[in-house]
């Protein structure tokens, strides 16, 4: 039997694939796709993951729906425990959190991200929201999954960030090891077009979404990138995964991360 799914659902499934079983995983706030992906992973291939929920810091909750804000009590439903803010941040910076999702309005080839400002601080062209806990947590959490839903604009994957909020593999002050950072840095970057990895600390194209060509990715990317010898399309999600995405997020909060044209991208299996 064939089934259909949207780009938003495919994107969430691809993010969920980066979660490993029995790891400690966290996403922070303002990231509904990452929220849905963590719950999808926990209900499928990563049942033993320790999931820290958004800005509630609730451990392993099973919310009935994902609200449009990450600090709402509805996200704490059924939680095994509510961490204090201090517990979640201490756990992150001492190196006991395995995996964090992180986004950026700008992302450079080394996975440094900018969520602070477009243009020069102070008095920038656009003041963005800000980095939350990222500039410490990105130094110490073991693995980072970066994501953006804004790759096609050509303004996101850039040669140089206007401002470095969160640390990738190489900053103007040196590499992660030169800076003495214990976290491993960005491992994967998932965009609405493609998936990159960082084998030598620099973004390499690894997978393409089914309706995207290498030319599309090159046109949208502001830096040179290597292409994996085994470049492949992303795996097709199962019907079960798609149904779970819809059940976890009945308000479709995940779709708010995408522009209207991207939401028209649908696939049939």
């Amino acid at each position: 039997m064939s089934y259909r799914f949207g780009l938003d659902e495919l994107f969430v499934v691809e993010l969920a694939r980066t979660v490993r079983d029995a790891e400690v995983v966290f996403h922070g706030f303002g990231s509904p796709c990452a929220t849905v992906a963590m719950h999808l992973a926990k209900r499928t291939h990563a049942p033993h993951a320790l999931l820290i929920e958004g800005a509630t810091y609730a451990v392993n909750p099973s919310p009935a729906f994902i609200p449009p804000t990450s600090n709402d009590h509805s996200l704490k439903r059924g939680a095994a425990y509510s961490m204090r803010f201090e517990e979640a941040f201490d756990m992150s910076v001492r190196g006991d959190v395995d995996h964090m999702f992180l986004s950026g309005l700008q992302i450079d080839p080394y996975g440094n991200t900018n969520v602070t400002a477009v243009g020069r601080m102070p008095a920038p062209k656009v003041k963005l929201g800000g980095g939350g806990g990222g500039c410490n947590m990105s130094a110490t959490i073991r693995r980072l999954t970066l994501w953006t839903t804004n790759h096609r604009s050509g303004r996101c994957l850039v040669e140089r960030c206007d401002f470095i909020t969160d640390i990738g593999h190489l900053t103007p002050e040196g590499t992660r090891s030169e800076l003495g950072y214990t976290g491993g840095g960005p491992e994967v970057l998932v965009t609405e077009l493609a998936v990159f990895d960082y084998p030598d600390g620099r973004a390499r194209l690894r997978k393409l979404f089914p309706d995207v060509t290498l030319g599309d990715v090159t046109a949208a990317t502001g830096f040179e990138f290597a292409v994996a010898a085994d470049l492949a399309p992303v795996d097709t999600p199962s019907r079960h995964q798609i149904e779970l995405v819809r059940a976890i997020d009945p308000l479709s909060v995940r779709r708010r991360e995408f522009g209207p044209a991207e939401l028209e991208r649908t696939f049939r299996q």
Partner: peptide, 26 residues
């Protein structure tokens, strides 16, 4: 560390305006 309305309503308009004009130090 952050001022805004997450993915839902996006950037904080008055904060953003004040920071961009330089009337507020971000």
């Amino acid at each position: 560390s952050y001022v805004g309305y997450e993915q839902d309503h996006g950037l904080a308009p008055a904060f953003r305006r004040a920071a961009e004009e330089g009337s507020l130090e971000a």
